[in-house]
Amino acid sequence: MQAAHGRGPAVATGIKRVHPDSVVFTYQGDGDLASIGMAEIVHAASRGENFTVIFINNAVFGMTQGQMAPTTLIGQKTTTSPRGRTAAEAGWPIRICELLDTLEGPAYIAREALTTPPRIRSAKKSIRRAFEAQLAGEGFGIVELLSTCPTWWGMDPLEAIRHIDDTMVEHYPLRVFRDRPAAHDRPAGQQEEAGSDA
């Protein structure tokens, strides 16, 4: 099912509310999720919608030929920041996981990087865990995957991987931000358990 640019979480909400027993996920880029679709992702997360979001963060609008994204790093050159992104002109890169981590709704939030074999294995674990959360009815899960865009970064694939590990992770720390049943699933009258920051 193809959603309009940015509207995946709203469309997924519609599908999940009709078929609550189906496994539902969205697959969204950083332009899609963090730019035009910011409202949809925040509200789906806030509602604790019981689906999974796979968020591909390559710090650029790849499909449309390499424009600046909300996640583009300061100083990064793109086709619409030809002299490098400056905070004065375009603000700072947005950290989606940290932002969603302020909400009660999400059950699982993690950021991983698709770079070296150990990191890819870790990413697979997080993705599995996010889907398990959905299957257990725990609520909204999102896995942000730092990914390369060799074409629009002007790097070869290996350089691009190194760029993520050397530079991007500084701004986007790899972390499981939350791994717990959604707040509204707590038995009433009990204290909320602290999120386990693995």
Binding site: M38, F61, T64, T80, S81, E89
Partner: peptide
């Protein structure tokens, strides 16, 4: 950004700031 007109914003990003203009990429 949206294809097939991406060269317009890209041109503006290149040319407007040096002549005191404003190019801003909106979030949508």
């Amino acid at each position: 950004p949206i294809t097939p007109q991406n060269k317009i914003p890209e041109y503006m990003a290149e040319h407007l700031p040096p002549i005191g203009g404003v190019y801003l990429q909106a979030e949508s």
